[in-house]
């Protein structure tokens, strides 16, 4: 099954085990960008576990995660939800033509106080 392969690939990239999750929802309780996101940290864990990955790939939530790691820090079971979000995001942008950010888009986004480091990390996060 193609979906199964995708799931395996995401689990491999995430290098974390969704079965450890006890579904307490503390990750989503702690998430600072919860209201902006369509799918929330605990849903990423559960949907990857269930192989329900297509909706995640299509969702803007992939880019709304701030990667602040508070979900990783607060999780009582060390599930590391951010790793699943990251792995799904990578699965998406590693496909051909799926770079989230191109150098041409940069000038329009730059503001006076944009730190250079932000650009570097944005390229890391949103491109192959």
């Amino acid at each position: 099954m193609e979906n199964n392969n995708l799931r395996e690939q995401i689990l491999f990239t995430a290098n974390a085990d969704p079965k450890k999750c006890m579904k307490c929802g503390k990750c989503s309780g702690a998430c600072p960008n919860y209201d902006e996101m369509e799918y929330h940290p605990h849903q990423f864990v559960s949907m990857v576990q269930n192989g329900d990955i297509e909706p995640l790939l299509k969702s803007e939530s992939l880019y709304l995660c701030l990667t602040c790691m508070v979900c990783v820090e607060r999780c009582p079971r060390n599930v590391q939800p951010a790793r699943f979000i990251e792995a799904v995001r990578l699965a998406k942008i590693r496909q051909q033509g799926e770079n989230r950010l191109t150098p041409q888009q940069i000038p329009a986004k730059i503001e006076e106080d944009t730190p250079q480091q932000l650009l570097v990390s944005a390229f890391r996060k949103y491109t192959k």
């Binding site: 503390k26 990750c27 309780g29 607060r74």
Partner: peptide, 20 residues
């Protein structure tokens, strides 16, 4: 659900939590 953050502010405790 679970409480993710408690912040003391102006004599209140601001509780942020998930309702799954």
């Amino acid at each position: 659900g679970m409480v993710g953050k408690v912040t003391p502010e102006n004599g209140k405790l601001k509780v942020q939590a998930s309702d799954l």
